[in-house]
Structure formats: structure tokens, C-alpha cells
Simulated assay, not measured.
Amino acid sequence: MDRLSLIGVVLALAALVGGSVLKGAGLSGLWSPAAFVIVIVGTVAAILVQTPMATFRRAVRILRWVFRPPVRDPQAQIARILEWSHTARRQGLLGLESELPNVADEFLRKGLQMVVDGSEPEQIRHALEIELASQQQRDLAAARVFEGMGVYAPTLGIIGAVLGLMAVMKNLADPSKLGHGIAAAFTATIYGIGAANLALLPMSSKLKGVVAAQVHEREMLIEGLIAIAQGENPRIIEARLSGYVA
């Protein structure tokens, strides 16, 4: 669990609710079914028009990374690479074949399989870098789904405010309804700007950071696998890979 993300969500809600209460608007001032429909439903509708189905599904799957990012342990990965390096020097590359069933990560298992098969180091690098770039592109596109929602939400909030003011203008003959109507109109603006700046845009940035960290770790794994294929000394491999952790 990412505690900072959880704390951030709690503080965002506290800031919004607390600010509304302290300003005298109260909790009821934050609730407007019409604003919810215009801003939230409208934002989802806009992003569905913009986004391919595969990308949207990927965005839904990686949303959990905001609070539960993939477990990363670079030191453990380096230790595993060094263990494989020692095995390869003692038993040859074919000695690593027994390790394949124990590798859960498909990317790492594919790279290790190529090493066991005796592929040339440059072939290994080329194949893994293509797969890494493709995965990075898919994940970044998914993260940008929330960025796009953060762009649309404030605009839809303005649309909601304008629609609310239009309804107020129809009741100019009844001054008792003007104050409540104007307040309700601006609730849509709060929904739009609040959703964008307190949730959607930060979520997008967080996901992009997780993707960047994954790419960095896998670049390290590529270097380690290539070093094993080249038969380099485990101490040299450890020194090279330690730079990725630093």
C-alpha cells in the first residue's frame, strides 16, 4: 500500500469538505446531482470517445497502481542476476534452463530463455528493448487516460455552471431563488476543477512515475542478461548493475 497516496486522498477530501464548512457553504453546498451528471458522467463520456477500448481497459487495470504499485526490489533482482551469472560460469548457459520455471515475470523469463538458447547478445538486446518499448507505450497511453479526463473535467464544470446560471436567469422574477440557484450553478465548477486537480491529474502523474520506474528496472535486467550471455565476471556485472540502484 502506498501510504502517501492514501494520505493525499484523505487530505484532499478534508481540504474540500473543511473548506466548504469553514466558508459557510456547508456539506449540502457540495452536493448537486445535476453537477455530478454534467461533470463526472460527461468526463467519462468524453474520454470514451477519445480512447480506444484496449487502452481504456488497460487504464482501468493499472488504476490500482496509484495505491498498490507493483512491488520493486532492485537489490533482489541484482542478487538473482549474480546467482545466474555464477551458475552460467560453472555449468554453462544451459545450466540456467532449470531456473526458467521459477521466473514469474514474463519479460525476464523471455530474456533468460534467449540466454539459455545461446542467442547473440545484440539479438537479446534488440528483442527485449522492442518488447520494453511496446509495453511502455501501452502503459503511458493508459496513464494519459486520466490526464485527458483531468483536461475535460474543468471545461465540463464551466458548462455545468453556465447551464445552472441559465436556469437562474429564468427565475429572476423570484429573488428568493437567486442565491440558492447561483450557489448550485457553481457547484459544477467545483466538481470539475476539484476532480481534475485533486484526483485525475495527480493520478496520471503517479502512474507515469510507476511506469518510468518499471522501465528503469527492466533496462537493468536487460544489461544483466546480456552480461551473462557475454560471460562477464560477476563482480563486473554487480558493479554495472549497482549504478541503476544508485
Rank of each mutant, 00 (worst) to 15 (best):
R138Y: 09
V116C: 02
E129D: 15
A173Y: 03
F186G: 02
G111W: 00
A195N: 07
A142C: 10
G194V: 01
Q136I: 08
E106P: 09
M114L: 14
G148V: 03
L172D: 09
D105A: 01
L165P: 09
T187C: 13
M166K: 08
I130D: 15
E131Y: 06
I158N: 06
I158E: 10
A161W: 07
E106K: 13
P121F: 02
L140S: 08
E106V: 14
V162E: 05
L200V: 04
L178R: 12
V116H: 01
A195K: 01
A161H: 09
G181K: 06
A185M: 13
I158R: 06
S119I: 12
K170D: 13
G179Y: 06
D139M: 07
L201H: 11
F146Q: 03
V145K: 01
A143H: 04
M203P: 02
T187E: 05
E129T: 11
L128R: 01
T189N: 04
G157H: 06
T155S: 15
K170W: 07
V115I: 05
I130C: 12
L198F: 14
V145M: 06
T187M: 09
L172H: 02
A173H: 12
D117W: 04
N102P: 01
H180Y: 11
V162K: 02
A185I: 07
K177N: 12
H126V: 13
T187H: 04
H126L: 15
S204C: 05
R109I: 05
F107G: 05
G179M: 06
M166I: 15
L178F: 14
R144Y: 09
D117L: 04
L128H: 03
G181M: 09
G194Y: 00
L172G: 07
P101T: 01
I158A: 09
L178S: 12
Q137H: 12
G194R: 00
V145H: 01
A183F: 07
Q123C: 09
F146D: 03
L198K: 05
R109C: 08
A127K: 02
L201D: 05
P154R: 02
H180F: 11
R125D: 10
G160R: 03
A196K: 00
A185Y: 10
V151H: 11
P202V: 10
L140M: 14
P121S: 08
V168A: 00
P101H: 07
L165G: 02
A141G: 03
G160E: 08
G192N: 08
D174Q: 12
L108P: 00
G150W: 01
G181F: 08
M166A: 12
E122S: 13
M166H: 06
M169K: 10
K110I: 08
V116E: 02
F186H: 08
H180R: 13
Y191R: 00
E106M: 11
N171D: 14
A184Y: 05
M114K: 07
